Computed example of a mutant assay.
Amino acid sequence: MVTSRFRTPLLRTAVCAVVRRRPELDRRLYAWQVDGFIRDREVRKRCVARLYEQFPATRPAFWRLNDDLIGTVMSRRRRIPELRAFAPPVRVVFGARDRYLNFRVARRFAALFPHSQLHLLAEAGHYVQVDEPEQVANLIVAE
């Protein structure tokens, strides 16, 4: 996964140097990663190009996120009791075909909230809102 390249300091330095010198390689690496997140080929063509256009400006924030990703995740575990005490209903919507945040992750995430409803969209992947926008919208507005 792309984030692992940026989480390892030496590897991150090497990758950063290469992508600065070879912008086309940067674009191809990005497309290789993000292409797998979107099911429909035509949608993928439009979205990945548009997302990449926005990515360079966000890269410093992306690097900072990865600087302390594991530490942040571990420190947030202390807040799990707060999630379990959250009373309002929560809809958790995941793509059943997501290779990264799979159905096990979705179930564990939904289990954090006492009044959650888990919706695994059968044909959606990692970018569930791109693969199934109508279903996601309907779940957001449903009462």
Score class of each variant (00 low, 15 high):
33 Q>H: 15
96 A>W: 05
84 R>E: 14
50 R>H: 12
66 N>R: 01
123 E>C: 06
50 R>S: 05
104 R>Y: 14
71 G>A: 15
73 V>D: 06
23 P>I: 02
127 Y>P: 02
72 T>F: 06
138 N>R: 15
96 A>I: 03
48 V>F: 03
129 Q>D: 04
91 R>M: 02
104 R>S: 15
127 Y>L: 15
131 D>M: 02
131 D>L: 03
121 L>N: 10
124 A>W: 01
116 S>W: 08
47 C>N: 04
132 E>M: 11
132 E>P: 01
116 S>Y: 06
121 L>Q: 13
49 A>Q: 11
115 H>C: 10
83 L>P: 03
118 L>W: 02
113 F>W: 09
27 R>V: 04
119 H>D: 09
97 R>N: 11
95 G>E: 03
98 D>I: 07
86 F>T: 01
23 P>F: 04
25 L>F: 12
51 L>A: 10
88 P>R: 13
48 V>Y: 02
65 L>D: 11
106 A>E: 09
133 P>Y: 15
64 R>N: 10
81 P>E: 13
21 R>Y: 04
31 A>S: 11
139 L>I: 07
26 D>M: 05
40 D>K: 06
131 D>Q: 01
34 V>L: 04
46 R>C: 00
82 E>V: 12
48 V>S: 06
126 H>N: 03
97 R>W: 08
117 Q>P: 00
139 L>M: 07
60 P>H: 10
108 R>P: 00
83 L>W: 12
103 F>E: 10
46 R>T: 01
29 L>D: 04
45 K>Y: 02
61 A>K: 14
129 Q>N: 13
44 R>P: 00
133 P>S: 12
25 L>E: 05
43 V>L: 11
130 V>C: 08
87 A>C: 02
131 D>G: 02
82 E>S: 11
97 R>A: 14
76 R>A: 12
103 F>W: 14
73 V>C: 10
44 R>F: 05
33 Q>A: 14
68 D>P: 00
97 R>V: 08
66 N>A: 01
75 S>M: 09
121 L>M: 14
68 D>K: 11
113 F>P: 01
125 G>W: 04
24 E>W: 15
59 R>K: 09
59 R>C: 00
91 R>A: 11
41 R>N: 02
41 R>P: 00
92 V>G: 04
80 I>D: 04
29 L>C: 08
60 P>F: 13
95 G>L: 05
48 V>I: 07
